[in-house]
Design a protein around this nucleic acid. Structure first.
Lengths: 328, 328
DNA sequence: CTGAAAGCGCTTACAG
DNA sequence: CTGAAAGCGCTTACAG
């Protein structure tokens, strides 16, 4: 069923049908009504693909996340999708995977789909492979990078000052008397490196020993690494984790090993995710302002769509949220 | 940059360029190589929209979830997206919202986008509004319904036998000596009604009192309702929750009220989600086999795409996973 | 082995 | 107020 079928049925030309579909003025009322009723009878819906071809915009925005099952990436995708669906855009959401190559391939796919804009969610996209794919395949498509930066004329960015958030957590713990603060990092990503840098800076500033461990990002590994860290550093009296998941995974192990939280060991997670309030004990956490980050992306994207060439870089400050795993 | 620009640059016709792009045989080797090199120089990528217009397939599959931030819906979307991206399909993932009307509107949007298939994830789509939208706008587009059923010729379905899973949980608790088993339900959805029915049937079969409470689906409300239930039914010795989130939200309150889990109150959640292992105490849960459900959807979708008109209905049996909130 | 032409389903100047 | 025509970027019979 095309616009021509409707036209034939109504005894008019396709142009006229197109005009009523697009609410163009200057159509005789009776003609418009007749066409509208036929449109309704057939439940006609215009092909957006054909329309996109002539209008030079498919009204689609591409969203890249490494894994859509990760709640943390989903917030931004949700906000973008909801907001722009209202404006007639559809979202192509791709799971870009872990490898630089698969991420770059996704950029190529989105370029083939001729999306009007793309949003990259997560610092993992900050690598040369993706950057090259952008300059090769989307040198002028508006791109918004959530929690990452590309020094490219067509990409805006909104980042969380995670280093500062982590430093603030260190200083807070120090102010409550903790002097042996461990940092347990997540998977190796630009974001986590930045958090660790914040930890190191604060430790240096306060002249504390730097006790830093890495994990693969899973709850299980976090528990194991924590156990090892506490064995190697019996003096430890606080641990900051790069994510809430790591903190929750480990805290049960700490309790099982007979230590009290927060009396013996204070704990702070990162992200202020749903896990933090559901955890038992409830987890203090560095709020990296995911919601604000996502909102900022959405608002920059909107400006960019309205005003081609518009670009913006924003930084959002984290905040410490205290619950039961820290004592004042 | 179009295929014509490439053609001009190569001194051939667009047809020839199209043929090498599509790897058609019968092109002189030197011609092919020349075109390929030019394609590479310009990082040319074909417009899938234009291609879709002539091929009568946009190679897109539409995925409807009520809210992409809900981990529970995201598993299926992930699997479909990943699997079909490899085959050249892109996924249009829409947040369909809570109202029947917004869900139906999403069906209309997907029809406008001329997707090759759609997958509905979640029992909430099982309503007349959506059903009408399907018969009106996509009477013959292949549709896979995860955890719901439409008696329509173009829709396949894969459902979890949640009623049986819940009944099994009741019977298990009974077998361990619990005689006053409460059921705390989630938001009012077909899926949750089915779970509650399973509870009621089992309770009747075992001649137990039916103690059933409703919540709005949030952790906070679950804690409040649980407190009320235990006040009204001090004899209660076990609670089954319609989701893990409800169970985790409430268990902390139960502990705070001075009861022991599982000694005083045994607890079983539903979905065997990540929450269940992260919870403290670790939560016993009815595994509704989300992964298998999603896999089945993906495999049916694949068969449907290959074999138009193919349809299938599958039922997957849940299983009880015991952890620390139940005693044997 | 290659090209000219028609067509996929639309929209929009241009005429009338 | 309405229609014929051209064009958006492709692909594919049909000829040669």
């Amino acid at each position: 069923m095309t616009i021509y079928d409707i036209a034939k049925e109504a005894g008019v030309s396709a142009s006229t049908v197109s005009r009523v579909i697009n609410n163009r003025p200057g159509i005789k009322k009776s003609t418009r009504e007749k066409i509208e009723s036929i449109l309704k009878v057939y439940n006609f819906s215009v092909s957006e693909a054909a329309r996109g071809l002539v209008n030079q915009t498919n009204r689609m925005i591409g969203i890249l996340v490494s894994d859509i099952r990760n709640q943390h990436h989903t917030e931004g995708a949700y906000m973008i999708e909801r907001h722009f669906m209202k404006k007639g855009y559809c979202s192509l959401i791709l799971n870009a995977g872990d490898s630089d190559e698969s991420m770059a391939e996704c950029v190529r796919i989105l370029s083939s789909r001729r999306v009007d804009a793309v949003v990259l969610i997560g610092s993992v996209f900050q690598n040369r492979c993706v950057m090259n794919a952008i300059t090769d395949y989307m040198p002028s498509t508006p791109i918004i990078f959530q929690n990452g930066i590309f020094n490219l004329p067509n990409v805006s960015s909104v980042v969380s000052a995670e280093d500062e958030g982590t430093a603030e957590a260190v200083k807070y713990l120090y102010s409550t008397g903790r002097k042996h603060i461990v940092y347990i990092n997540g998977a190796d990503t630009p974001s986590n490196r930045k958090k660790a840098a914040g930890y190191s800076n604060a430790a240096a500033e306060l002249q504390l020993d730097e006790i830093l461990y890495n994990t693969d990002g899973t709850a299980k590994n976090s528990a194991d690494v924590t156990e090892m860290a506490l064995a190697e550093h019996p003096e430890a009296d606080a641990i900051i984790y790069a994510t809430d998941l790591l903190a929750v995974g480990a805290s049960r192990r700490i309790l099982d090993d007979g230590k009290k939280i927060p009396e013996d060991i204070a704990i702070i997670g990162t992200d202020n995710s749903p896990f933090s309030t559901l955890a038992n004990p409830r987890l203090s956490s560095i709020d990296t302002k995911l919601f604000e980050l996502s909102e900022a992306c959405s608002s920059i994207l909107e400006k960019t769509l309205l005003n081609p060439g518009y670009t913006e870089n924003a930084v959002i400050a984290p905040a410490l949220v205290l619950r039961e795993t820290t004592s004042q």
